[in-house]
Design a protein around this nucleic acid. Structure first.
Lengths: 195, 195
DNA sequence: CGAGATATTGACTAGGCTCAATTGAAGTGG
DNA sequence: CCACTTCAATTGAGCCTAGTCAATATCTCG
């Protein structure tokens, strides 16, 4: 665990190697995975508002991060307007990303959610130079379910259903996309999740 | 409509009078209300990332906004570090707020969602000097349902159920909270939504 | 007053959850 | 190296919550 909800905020982190998840907890105890982070992505942005992180960051495998102290960031932003703009953009894009997840949780059915999730992963893999068709998941079915607002059983069943439909090859946490177009078509008429 | 998803971004807006909603749309056409904004709150923050708004802002009644051109904001932030920090805080808090909504959509049952929504509204009303027990909703049942990931029929039924349970008095869009503690208790053991 | 939008209520259905059993994978220690 | 434990994943059966479809009621406003 890199930081816990409630910890005082003084840095954001960039993933250098590995993979992490971000978890938010309800007062009642229920918790939900709010994001997965891969190499090159930033986490901890939610801490700047109140000076405390309100999610916890947990590594899903051996992971190295780059610590970016907030004081340093603020200074850099002050000195270099272009850096300042980048920072705004990063924060704003995190808002957009979350809005997409809200859309997923609020309007999609289970199959659509998993398809959107896999397609999103696929494009992120591709952006990092990996094959967009061979996904190596680092998280459990439970994590995926939590992120998608489903139970782990439903996620497992959906993998089975997609496999039977010829869309995927599933071998534990290795998922191969065999019919990319077909997977996209699961998203109702014909759409894809940007990020 | 103040701005539409896709419009080029050049300003954020502060509500001076009235009430607005923010709507995101899926490529497939399905749409969802992603936030409601009251007096004093900021909207349009999601546009900074890509230079285009990715949600639409729609007024729910006669509304006046204060236009805050981004160029001006960036300049002020550069000149006054305290302003810069406030801006980060605002952006970050929007992220936190969205995470709470994701928690709501991902983990709560219908009753819990509506209770959380009403309690959140209640505290926002209180912060603006209104009674926390007399909520004047400006949005339709459909808007509420969309925001909470429910159908308008379910929202209507829940209002009825809460009324019968003595928690609320419901008169169209005027909702009076008659049993604040009871409403809080709907949130499983005993919790409340911060914002 | 009438038209259109909004809200309520009912009956039925279905998608995803719960509970439960089983299998499989991975790590531990003798 | 293999039994043993533990954790993760799969699969099944039955149920329940919220969605769908449909009929009315109520409000708002020209």
């Amino acid at each position: 665990m890199l930081f816990k909800a409630g910890d005082p905020f003084h840095a954001i982190y960039a993933i250098r190697r590995g993979c992490m998840k971000s978890v938010v907890t309800r007062k009642g105890g229920a918790e939900q995975v709010s994001a997965f982070y891969m190499v090159g992505e930033l986490l901890g942005l939610d801490g700047m508002g109140r000076g405390r992180y309100d999610s916890s960051a947990v590594a899903l495998e051996d992971t190295e991060v780059c610590v970016l102290p907030f004081s340093l960031i603020a200074q850099l932003a002050h000195e270099r307007p272009s850096f300042q703009h980048r920072l705004y953009a990063v924060l704003s894009r995190e808002i957009s990303r979350n809005q997409n997840v809200m859309l997923l949780l609020g309007t999609m059915r289970a199959e659509e959610r998993l398809a959107a999730f896999l397609l999103s992963l696929s494009s992120r893999f591709a952006r990092r130079g990996h094959s967009p068709f061979e996904l190596s998941l680092r998280m459990t079915r439970d994590d995926i379910g939590s992120y998608l607002g489903l139970t782990l059983e439903t996620v497992s069943r959906l993998f089975g259903r997609f496999r039977n439909a010829g869309l995927l090859e599933v071998d534990q946490r290795i998922v191969r996309i065999r019919d990319y177009a077909g997977l996209k078509a699961v998203l109702s008429p014909d759409e894809a999740l940007a990020d």
